[in-house]
């Protein structure tokens, strides 16, 4: 569904990604783990079109149709079915919860279908319904994360990129968010999950990649990686 080949991204003279190749197949949860500054966020930003790569290809296929995401504007990538829950949540703090969700469906025209998605979002996160008229900036961190996920789902994506959804949340909330990720995956959404919380991420994901200073150093089924001695030492604190 998503196929990245030899992707190189740099900020000025600094190479952030040095030839990353990665794949997400339909229905999978793939996690990308790695330390701060390894290039995880850069990779997601590049897939979403916020950063232009120096070289390499990003292919996305849906219904047998293959399209290159290189040189596409962020909103066009969303239109194809690739949404992102960005790092730090980035909910529109100056807009209400309802407005945030409505903007998530910016590219959709069918009001009835949008309404259905909204109902589904509230089913997934009942807490958002209680806060629907509140400004997103006044929500707690956990609620903002829920809103960010719900907003991304409003675009009806086929592939969801998630950047550190557990960041700064209480353990109980992290569990809740991860439960939700499992649930939306079971409903058919493919997920590329970037996480620092490698322990949880490896439990949840089907496959995993380990990114170190811009390079993929390990990959494989998540369960195997969780057993790997190096991964244990570096990321699982064992």
């Amino acid at each position: 569904m998503l196929k990245i080949n030899n992707l190189i991204v740099s900020y000025g003279n600094i190479k952030a990604l040095q030839g990353v190749s990665l794949e997400v197949k339909e229905g999978e949860i793939v996690t990308l783990i790695g330390a701060n500054g390894a290039g995880k966020t850069t990779l997601l930003k590049t897939i979403s079109g916020l950063i232009a790569p120096v070289s390499g290809t990003i292919y996305y296929s849906k219904n047998e149709k293959n399209s290159s995401l290189n040189h596409m504007a962020p909103h066009e990538i969303v239109r194809l079915g690739v949404s992102q829950v960005p790092e730090g949540r980035m909910v529109f703090a100056n807009l209400s919860v309802a407005e945030n969700l409505d903007l998530g469906a910016f590219l959709r025209r069918d009001a009835r279908e949008v309404r259905e998605s909204l109902d589904k979002a509230f089913q997934l996160f009942p807490r958002l319904k209680e806060r629907v008229t509140q400004n997103a900036g006044t929500l707690s961190g956990g609620e903002q994360q829920m809103l960010a996920i719900a907003r991304a789902l409003m675009a009806k994506p086929k592939l969801l990129l998630m950047d550190e959804p557990s960041l700064g949340l209480a353990p109980i909330l992290v569990k809740e968010i991860f439960e939700t990720i499992r649930k939306i995956n079971q409903e058919g959404l493919s997920i590329l999950l970037v996480e620092q919380n490698a322990h949880l991420a490896l439990q949840l994901a089907h496959r995993a990649y380990v990114l170190e200073t811009g390079k993929i150093v390990l990959e494989g089924p998540a369960r195997e990686l969780a057993m790997n001695e190096e991964v244990k030492k570096a990321y699982l604190g064992a």
Binding site: A73, P74, H75, V78, M90, F92, A93, M154, A155
Partner: peptide, 23 residues
């Protein structure tokens, strides 16, 4: 919706683009 999008863009171009707003 366009007005809401204006406010979203004023908050952050990146965040607006990521939800599908043609910035």
């Amino acid at each position: 919706r366009m007005g809401k999008a204006m406010r979203a863009v004023s908050f952050s171009h990146d965040a607006a683009g990521l939800v599908g707003i043609p910035v």
